[in-house]
Nucleic acid binder design. Structure first.
Lengths: 351, 351
DNA sequence: CTAAAATATGTGCTCGAGCACATATTTTAG
DNA sequence: CTAAAATATGTGCTCGAGCACATATTTTAG
């Protein structure tokens, strides 16, 4: 609230009765400064709380920032499509500061594809890389490689246990499972048969869903209400038709279930086959895919938990660019809020 | 994705075989350029899609941006406290670009205070002002004055009907009411006595709450379920003790109510007096005040609708600074998402 | 006490855009 | 055809930070 006059190095030099070269040496601890000069300059720096002009600084540095984005192909899994919007939004903000981008997609259901594409990415001359480390082991190998060749990386979507959490933006998946549980609890109150359903299309990329299940179960364990019974079901398959039959068979053989918690965005596959005539049911799943919103609007899905891939990718890009261009520190623990979405507030989260 | 080499004016001058002065004149349409030179330069500009270096530009302009924040005193109404965090966060981002701030607080329950403080603000030498226009008529007078003296303004929290919505960031209050209704509907299912409760401490600043009520009622109207009965109650008073008695009396005389929708952050006053022994009740209100979260955790409040004052103020500040410093256009219709908060996801929205 | 070495300090250029002013070229008037 | 006026073009400074290099001052060795 004080009158924040912006001091320049020249101002400081004049105030201290030295040249700007000396001020510069003091600021950057480059030595070759007498103790008298050092003290004078330091006192003034402290007094006026000198902040260098970021604009002048970055003009001088004239750094460029070329980022590489290593993520699943949104054509293969539409969950990732909003990430592009978030990244492009960040690019818009940073391209006047010399930021450029390059996308490298991999098939999220195919480990080999990740390995192949990550090698491709490494060949590129990027200054920083943003990646969704879907495959634990392979991703760790990849970032070790990045460390070795001194390239900055940043993770989004899911964390890697062995990695500095300062380099990650995403959600707390355990807590996210608890939220699902709370929603089903609020809606069904008691005497409910609850199913935790893992629908997995091709590849078992399960750490994600397991964390959610853990959180979900922890909520009900703490509740100590015997009138809820919980069971886990894994609905897998090889091709889409097959999966549809599996789900249909599951629904038909479990008419007693009235609470459905689907641990990923595939909930629309279940919703398509659910009959909403049964009065007291609660269906909770993940992600604002068009297909999911359709069933949210029609009332078959009660709640969707929003993982906000767009914001995750946006923030990841911004952190990287800010770090590379302006040496800004990346804030610690970037857990973004977990949004509860129903038929009345989903609009706010699209675009 | 092409090789985005960053061209400078010097590069263009060389390519066109002219001096940078001529290039500059072409770029800014300042005339005094022969047709041959004009064509040559324009062709190259088009060809390389020249984008001026924003950093160099703003170093040259060396604009300062002094913002004034005209908002309610958070000491008087704690709802506003998070706004300060959001504004300071924005300030952190922009102070290296020469942005400074000045707060002018008014008493949100006192029109005269607003008028007095807004006059005070006008005396200040600001480049832009961010305000929460609580008082319709007075605020319109104020921004008309701003228009007259050509000062940039931006609104947050609530809109003014007569004002360009491009200068506003906030939430859709009607929709927010519908969300409250949906939550009560999901939780209570049917056969419910629902109360819409306006708790107003001193001043009737009602447009806010009226919009929410309209949305709330519109949801139930569309539902066409006779088993819900809706009633509106206005709980007013002159001093806090008095209000407590009023609320207590209201609760005691309306034991039949099981759905409570409180249209503002004062829901903790109701929650403090509610008995949660009754099994099938649903209490929905607004805002993540500490007092509200207490009752959310204890289970008396089921849902809080998050108006995200922090993000509103953050975005407002960012838009103003970006506009003043970099001539960025302020995006149209800045309606931020309306977050549904329960005991399991509130943490993500704090800080 | 002097010359060389070590240390301290200052100067002037750069980053890219933008503009004032100086200079060069073309057009017009007589 | 020439001088003045009009027009076109180019030069060099500035914004603030940062650094290489030039210069000044102090210390050390003999």
């Amino acid at each position: 609230m004080q009158d924040m006059k912006k001091y320049t190095i020249k101002d400081i030099a004049k105030l201290a009765g030295v040249s700007k070269g000396t001020v510069d040496r003091v600021i950057h601890n480059r030595g070759k400064v007498s103790e008298t000069a050092l003290k004078k300059v330091n006192n003034i720096l402290k007094e006026i709380d000198y902040q260098p002009n970021l604009i002048a600084q970055s003009l001088k540095n004239n750094k460029n920032c070329h980022l590489c984005i290593l993520m699943p192909d949104p054509e293969i899994d539409p969950y990732w499509a909003p990430c592009i919007d978030g990244i492009e939004e960040a690019l818009n903000e940073f391209s006047p500061f010399g930021t450029t981008l390059e996308y490298v997609y991999f098939n999220p259901f195919n480990k080999d594809s990740f390995e192949k594409q990550s090698l491709l990415a490494l060949k590129s001359e990027f200054d920083g890389i943003l990646l969704a480390p879907l495959f634990q082991k392979e991703s760790i190998a990849f970032i070790n490689e990045c460390d070795k060749i001194k390239k900055t990386y940043f993770l989004f979507n899911n964390d890697l246990k062995s990695v500095d959490s300062q380099k990650f933006v995403g959600q707390d998946l355990f807590q996210s499972g608890r939220i699902g549980a709370k929603l089903i609890h609020s809606t069904l109150k008691g005497n409910a048969e609850v199913a935790i359903i893992h629908i997995d299309e091709v590849f078992k990329n399960a750490t994600h869903m397991q964390e959610k299940e853990k959180g979900f179960r922890s909520y009900f364990n703490e509740l100590k209400d015997n009138s809820f019974s919980l069971n886990t079901y894994k609905l897998k398959h090889r091709n889409a038709n097959n999966l549809k039959k599996t789900i249909k068979y599951f629904i038909d053989t479990h008419p007693e279930i009235n609470g459905f918690f689907v641990t990923n965005s595939k909930i629309n596959l279940l919703a398509a086959l659910l009959n909403n005539s049964k009065k007291s049911t609660c269906v909770v799943g993940y992600d604002l895919l068009q297909e999911n919103i359709k069933y949210l609007k029609s009332g078959i899905i009660d709640y969707l938990i929003h993982q906000n891939p767009k914001r995750q990718a946006y923030l990841g890009t911004v952190f990287l660019a800010d770090y590379i261009l302006f040496n800004k520190v990346i804030p610690n623990k970037n857990l973004i809020p977990i949004d509860i979405v129903n038929s009345e507030n989903y609009m706010g989260y699209l675009k």
